[in-house]
Design a protein around this nucleic acid. Structure first.
Lengths: 239, 239
DNA sequence: CGCGAATCTTGACGACTGTCAAGATTTCTC
DNA sequence: GAGAAATCTTGACAGTCGTCAAGATTCGCG
């Protein structure tokens, strides 16, 4: 079975040719999904380089150098540089969409949720800043490169859903309903998150504390009127 | 006077060697600021190409081809590709920071301001989408490229000030004060603007109307409590 | 073991890039 | 109008890039 740069096998793993369903041995490690494990391994090292250099400056040779593979092997597992990068970002974002599931599940009160949410946002900037800037890089490129748009749109949608889960749970805990639609909520949080990320990378002091405070101040505003949380939102002067 | 790639002459025009201050002829067109006019002319054609291809894919040759100049002349007026691009974006954004000054000056009521503001946001997406995506491209690149950060930070600050003027005027017309700080307001609007731009470029129907509605729905929330504008913000379900 | 399929390495190709220098051309000044 | 300064063109250089093909190597199974 000759594998030529599997641009075909979309997301669904191409299964081995239907032998007995419950094979006695090798419950994992079927022949053909080793291919996928290699793709993932390659993606993981590629992500390090991509997060460091960005989409345009990360060459396939550089990506391969920072991994255990040689530069030619990339075209054995991916048809394109583009397919590799889309695969990488999809792979990362997939493990990232559920980052706040714990927050949603464990929060005991509206204020508790807000604090946990803000902390988590700050945490991910500190721990995964290169991944986040790579995502924003890719999304910006998709404004120029038609072929990136489908993947970006899908990821954006899943992030919007993620934010919606948080805000919905927040409203639920507060005994009311959100006052804004999901796209607005996502756009807002994405905006201030991006700002904080930029500030953090710039070494601006207070960028992270600022994000936390902004979240604490903003969330109560996203609820319909009936809810008056204890959180104080001091009507400050706008600069 | 040999001009070698004026990376020195920062922003201040290097004046001609002090002749009489009020020269009888040529009130404009002094010898040395023709140099600056050329820079601007070059920047303007470069912006077209940059807006079409983005930062990484726009080569100096391609930029020169879409202009009246040859590719070598770029290094006569700019020391770097980087300096050219930063100059271009600065040049564009400079004429762009005052886009909403008219809105601020002419609005007669809070609701009037909101509508004008929303319309103007939509208008600039339709008319200058390539410029906006170029800006987001550059800002993303600045997360990787140290040397871009200073310019990006300055531009971001001026955009924040621009938004602050709008929101402050809005609060003034409503007889109250903003409930959020300027960076938050900027981050929010920047987020939903970016989202709308992406949707517009994707050809998603309703992206622009969505932006307008979002602005109308969002602005009243940015005010301190005392103000109850007539604008209805229906507490919708969050998806 | 042995053979074929899968996997990986190596080296090269053509195209493109930013940069620069040498010289042609224009513009300005006296 | 001559000469000098400013401006622009042209062509080349040294790299780097994505891509691919040919061959070496490893793996899996009978």
């Amino acid at each position: 079975m000759i594998r030529m740069a599997s641009s075909d096998a979309r997301e669904g793993v191409s299964l081995p040719p239907m032998t007995q369903v419950a094979a006695p041995k090798s419950p994992r490690r079927t022949p053909a999904d080793k291919h996928d494990e290699r793709r993932k391994a390659l993606a993981e090292s590629a992500l390090r380089t991509l997060g460091e250099l960005g989409y345009a400056r990360a060459s396939l040779r550089e990506i391969a150098n920072n991994s255990e593979f040689s530069h030619g092997v990339v075209h054995y597992y991916f048809s394109d540089k583009l397919e590799l990068i889309v695969y990488c970002v999809r792979y990362y974002k997939q493990t990232c969409v559920h980052r706040y599931d714990g927050v949603v599940a464990e929060a005991t009160s509206p204020d508790d949720l807000v604090v946990r949410f803000g902390d988590k946002l700050v945490e991910t900037i500190v721990e995964e800043a290169p991944m986040h800037r790579l995502w924003y890089d890719l999304r910006s490129q998709s404004m120029f490169e038609e072929s990136l748009r489908e993947a970006v749109t899908q990821i954006d949608q899943s992030l919007e859903d993620m934010i919606a889960r948080v805000v919905n749970r927040y409203a639920e805990l507060a005994g009311t309903e959100p006052a804004i639609a999901a796209p607005v909520a996502y756009g807002m949080f994405d905006g201030i998150f991006q700002q904080a990320l930029l500030g953090y990378l710039n070494g601006r002091d207070g960028a992270l504390e600022g994000l936390r405070d902004q979240v604490v101040g903003l969330m109560p505003m996203l609820l319909a009127r009936p809810a008056e949380t204890t959180t104080s939102h001091a009507p400050g002067d706008l600069r």
